[in-house]
Amino acid sequence: MTDQRPGYGEEKEKASKRQFNNALAISAIIGIIIAAALKYAQGDSGSIFTASPDTMSISPALAIGLTILVLAGFIVFPVLGLFRMDELERGHNVNASALAGLYGITAFPAWHLLSLGGLLPAPTAVGLFLIIFCGGFLSYLFLKYRH
């Protein structure tokens, strides 16, 4: 902050944007690696969202490797990112994550009750995941662009 060179801030802002784009690219690469590995292991039916243990199986080593990538993509990477982003962005992310958790703990009993009443099929893990993930993402977009 003591640096008075003209353009000092612009340079830092550009470097920060570059870092963000790199992080996004690494996330995309992790996703592509997981999808490609499943496809390679199982052919056309290889999708983490539609696969069931009855119809699809992968080797233990591949399972452990992909699980590590999933943990990195969904926990380690985002948490590290929280420490690097500015306070406004961090606020959006933390609030969206809190809302996503709320959707999760509400979705199961609500869906289960509706299924008991015959209005919906029984809750599924993938369905709950999608509600939490999409709900969290939409909440983030709302918080970011609501003004």
Binding site: D3, G7, Y8, G9, E10, E13, K14, D86
Partner: peptide, 11 residues
């Protein structure tokens, strides 16, 4: 952007 960089926050 210049101010953002000097403050270590986003634009």
């Amino acid at each position: 952007a210049e101010l953002a960089g000097r403050l270590d926050v986003s634009r």
